[in-house]
């Protein structure tokens, strides 16, 4: 920018329809690329600044707040049909910095960076003193509950052996003393009835994911498990590179839970 030249930007209303369109395009972009956890929905637009872009177009620089829904990111349910996680279930919010290009009436995301954090324990307990709080996903009781639930599910399955993709959510419930868990699974090429060594099972080329909710209740002399899983429709094979094709854009990795990125919330190229 030449010295003394004012930078050309405008600050529209945060609830301006065009601002909201840009924010919603970014939320869709994030939900389609994140491979762990739950879909998020737009809650509030905190800041917006719109820059003129040369030679054409405008860049929306946005700060938004999102809220976690109850739909897992692998769940094909449209975001509009997903329920927002309520505060009594220990809600999780996201804070996102975004840059969205509007050109020829189309929005495309240039940059998205989000941090998510659960509501404070004080807030949850003030609303609902007996509500269970979120538990660490690597807690041994959580991991045990998921193992028991997935084993029980596979034991009842007549089809594929399902492998754990990720533990998504966990809570310790005081009465009756139990562990509530939610986790994602994927079908393998082993039959559940015949599997001898799960380590030798491979995810299907045409991925089939599922999402399970389970409760492991502690009892005198043992434990009880209740598990329900919802299977999603299979996901088509990603296009195979052909001889002569350009190198795939590394900024848009194919979502593959078998190869989860280290930071799933940082998506898109940085500009």
């Amino acid at each position: 920018v030449p010295a003394g030249t004012a930078l050309a930007y405008r600050e529209p209303d945060c609830d301006d329809p065009e601002t909201e369109q840009a924010a919603l395009a970014a939320v869709d972009y994030i939900n389609n690329r994140v491979v762990r956890g739950y879909k998020h929905t737009l809650n509030q637009i905190d800041k917006v600044r719109v820059w003129q872009r040369r030679p054409m177009g405008e860049v929306f620089e946005l700060e938004i707040d999102t809220l976690e829904t109850t739909c897992h990111v692998l769940d094909p349910t449209p975001l509009a049909n997903c329920t927002v996680r309520q505060p009594m279930q220990h809600a999780v919010e996201g804070d996102c910095d975004l840059r969205v290009l509007k050109q020829d009436g189309q929005f495309s995301v240039l940059f998205a960076k989000c941090d998510s954090s659960p509501d404070s324990a004080e807030d949850v307990l003030r609303l609902c003193p007996d509500c269970p709080l979120l538990a660490p996903l690597n807690d041994t009781k959580v991991v045990h509950a998921v193992d028991v639930a997935l084993t029980a599910f596979n034991a009842q399955s007549n089809g594929s052996y399902f492998q754990l993709v990720e533990i998504s959510r966990a809570q310790f419930v005081p009465l009756p003393q139990s562990t509530y868990v939610e986790f994602a699974v994927a079908a393998t090429d082993c039959a559940a009835k015949d599997v001898m060594d799960p380590a030798k099972c491979n995810l299907l080329a045409e991925k089939q994911y599922g999402f399970c909710k389970a409760t492991l209740t502690e009892k005198v002399g043992g434990e009880d498990v209740a598990v329900t899983c919802t299977m999603f429709q299979t996901q088509p094979l990603p296009p195979q590179p052909q001889p002569g094709d350009a190198v795939a854009d590394p900024a848009v990795p194919a979502p593959s839970p078998a190869n989860l990125p280290a930071d799933p919330l940082l998506v898109g190229p940085v500009v």
Binding site: C14, K47, L67, P87, A91
Partner: peptide, 27 residues
């Protein structure tokens, strides 16, 4: 409404353009 450039026009209701509305609830 026409006013002298040095005199501010009567202010209407103050609208804060940002942050925008909360669609669900604030965490």
């Amino acid at each position: 409404k026409v006013v002298q450039p040095s005199i501010a026009a009567a202010a209407g209701p103050l609208v804060r353009p940002c942050p925008g509305r909360i669609r669900h609830f604030k965490v």
